[in-house]
Design a protein around this nucleic acid. Structure first.
Length: 153
DNA sequence: GCCAACGTTGGC
DNA sequence: GCCAACGTTGGC
């Protein structure tokens, strides 16, 4: 099973929104490196939900992948901000995953905490200047993050 | 709101 | 294929 981290600005879509909806299509990823990671995700993989541009920023919960490598429908929607006129249905450029809510952590595992616990080679999200919105998390690191989240409850 | 980091675009 | 200009991300 794989472990991942995905970012969202809570003012756009937060863990509370996911908890209410239970499930959502994580679309709108428009960065090739992030897209490549999206395509590697498998059903059942666990994904940390990270609030970016938040106070404080950090990991706020867990979700799981329920459908992998879904062709992102927003790329063909001329009214969407994610519309990509260079993409075509026979050769789609962008992918998404359907995710489902598992839990909201009782307390955020803040970026500050993550920086105290991990080095930036262990955990990409704490690397200064990192702008990837989708990234892998090593299993051993993922388990420690979950243990930290539980210890904060 | 600032700005550093970084990806993308487009002229050449 | 280079690289300057530009846009976006995201911490602070």
């Amino acid at each position: 099973m794989g472990y991942w981290l995905m970012k969202s600005e809570p003012s756009v879509y937060s863990i509370v929104d996911l908890e209410r909806q239970r499930q959502t299509l994580w679309d709108g990823v428009r960065n090739y490196q992030a897209r490549n990671f999206i395509k590697e995700m498998q059903s059942g993989d666990l994904v940390f939900f990270y609030h970016s541009n938040a106070t404080p920023p950090g990991i706020v919960g867990l979700m799981s992948v329920v459908s992998s490598a879904v062709v992102d429908p927003t790329q063909f929607d001329a009214k969407s901000k994610y519309y990509d006129p260079k993409s075509s249905p026979d050769s789609p450029r962008w992918y998404a995953v359907e995710v489902e809510f598992i839990q909201a952590f009782p307390q955020i595992v803040s970026l500050e905490t993550l920086k105290q616990e991990f080095s930036d080679s262990e955990l990409l999200v704490i690397k200064p200047g990192n702008r990837l919105s989708v990234m892998p998390v090593a299993e051993i690191v993922a388990k420690r993050i979950i243990a930290i989240a539980n210890s904060l409850s």
